[in-house]
Write a protein that binds this DNA or RNA. Structure first.
Lengths: 337, 337
DNA sequence: GTCACGCATCGAAACGATTCGACGAACGCT
DNA sequence: AGCGTTCGTCGAATCGTTTCGATGCGTGAC
């Protein structure tokens, strides 16, 4: 293994000069820098990560904690993870993958052993047991999602409440007066996943504000469950003409179910969803939707962390404004007598 | 930060004794060990990862390279990643996440900086450009999938050829004489992804061997493409009664398309698939399938790496035998005159 | 002509573990 | 009783960087 002293000797300088040339923390003459760079290339030198971490107390590694629970849409998680890795690399950092399963002990371990410099935690619950720990840790962290008490933490997410509102407002704007929300599986609400509840809040608030009749229906992630919910909706709310779906796996089955029950989309029923664009575009009837900007959230989360690592203050809350894309599943209400 | 010398002083021993007590590399008296453990707990000591890596030239980190290309089923990748992390933790290792995008330079970087001890590479192509590098690297690696020339490498995967055979044999056993394979998107074959081709090989070989008429159809990952393939199959092979699907996103749309074209599954048409169990179970008609054992592959890959790190020799090729689960999508051929 | 200053570089001391060789004590054998 | 082992522990060297303070040298101000 070639080390910094080898480079130094080869370039005719001292090891510290090589280090400074590499880090840029002190001025190095153009001429010397070039000689050093040539030596590095020629010898194929790579700084030893462990030694670097030891001396600088920076590992240049970020921890990413991914959820592996029921009811969360896997592709979104993956897309998010990839965007975190990509963004981290742009700041010369790597990403250590942790599973939720590891729990608080896992967080403490990677933080206390100085294996990572900072942490990104996905799928934060309203009353997440990890919150006190994250506050106490001596390393900065960013949460994806908003817990009940976000004070002292840095959080970022799509503004799900606004997303719920936006869907309703869009439907209201098209003249719909009776709307329903088909939400995530019940267990997601039970365990207090913040984003699911926020959608409900936004949905309900906007409906009330606009004087719409509305109802909310959690739904299991299976076609059969979708079918049941569709049937129930038609029975309980015969005047229903607008549906908001916040449940990826059920989106397509639900539309199928409605059509089999004799409701054409969008002629008889307008559907909007909160889901990844990729999914919305690939349903049989492309669905008007608010995108889940996983890639942007990932990149922004990394930016926030880098700022914190650099000592800059960052806002505690970052809410990404929802953007609604019009597709084929929405239409003005047809006034049938 | 509390360090090993603090623990040593607190326990009244030398730092090296603490180290040996922790690693077990030399015998330590029961009594001393207990005192040391008490001190560790009391002081909350955690060995510094960087220092440890520097001194022992072991980082206890594995690199996992995940694909992010078109045509691969994301949940499988995720499931795999999670199983790797879980297995790695059981051997006291962590996992660094790399994307395919990083390419060879990324592999070289994490290996040469000693950031990781070993590598797991997913989605290996038949003529993968990373192969020479992996051979040359001074760190052990395990590939998920089989390249054209696997000599000198350690590879593991489901035996996709046998899986293709198994599907055909099952259909043949049910009396079907005309079968078709609906495969992955064309680009997957074009870039020479090994597992896709192996399915084709197995499928064709078994069909030929059994004297079945057969055809192979790559298919884009969209419902529309599924529909087109279904139509084409009925046109070109009117006697078709057995279909093997190796294309996750298309499985359900394809069955829908057949039914809309008047073919009932399994009465008129038997369908088998090679896909995750989770998917096979959740189609409207649960599908008889060969599972992709991502979890097992991940765990086994880690075991192999640990053996290699320990200096033990391991077989170059590990092929997991396919297992077919009977579900509702297959039935004996009905002899219509 | 001197003084102060800034630039480029060097030398040495961390950083926090692991590991190798050595050493005293206890033990079993002859 | 003497000798060779084994057991448990210690001390010191080592791993490869970063970083702090010091130093020499050229430069501009007065």
């Amino acid at each position: 293994m070639v080390k910094i002293t080898d480079v130094a000797r080869h370039a005719g300088v001292s090891p510290s000069t090589v280090s400074y040339a590499l880090s840029g923390k002190r001025p190095i003459s153009e001429e010397t820098r070039r000689r050093i760079e040539a030596s590095i290339r020629e010898l194929g030198y790579r700084p030893h990560a462990g030694a670097r971490a030891l001396a600088s107390s920076r590992s240049n590694v970020l921890a990413l904690v991914v959820p592996l629970r029921a009811g969360i849409h896997v592709p979104v998680v993956m897309q998010f993870a990839v965007s975190v890795v990509t963004a981290a690399r742009q700041h010369d950092h790597d990403v250590l993958l942790l599973t939720q399963e590891e729990g608080e002990e896992g967080l403490r371990r990677v933080a206390d052993t100085a294996l990572v410099d900072a942490l990104i935690v996905m799928d934060v619950q309203l009353h997440d047991p990890r919150l006190p720990l994250l506050r106490a840790l001596d390393r900065p962290s960013v949460l994806i999602g908003f817990p009940a008490g976000p004070a002292g933490l840095t959080c970022i997410d799509l503004d799900f409440k606004a997303a719920g509102e936006l869907c309703v407002e869009r439907l209201a704007g098209l003249g719909h007066r009776v709307v329903a929300l088909v939400g995530s599986p019940p267990e997601v609400y039970v365990r207090g996943t913040a984003f699911a509840q926020r959608v409900v809040e936004g949905f309900t608030a906007a409906a009330d504000r606009g004087g719409l009749a509305s109802s909310v229906h959690p739904c299991e992630a299976s076609p059969a469950a979708a079918r049941r919910v569709a049937e129930q909706l038609l029975r309980d709310q015969p005047a229903l003409t607008g549906v908001v779906v916040h449940n990826e796996p059920v989106l397509e089955p639900l539309i199928d179910a409605f059509e089999q029950l004799g409701l054409r989309v969008p002629v008889d029923l307008s559907v909007t969803a909160i889901c990844p664009d990729e999914l919305a575009e690939n349903v049989r009837v492309p669905v008007t939707s608010v995108a889940i900007p996983s890639t942007e959230v990932g990149a922004r989360a990394v930016e926030l962390l880098m700022k914190k690592l650099g000592g800059t203050d960052v806002p505690e809350a970052t809410l990404l404004a929802p953007r609604l894309t019009e597709r084929a599943s929405t239409a003005p209400r047809t006034l049938t007598p």
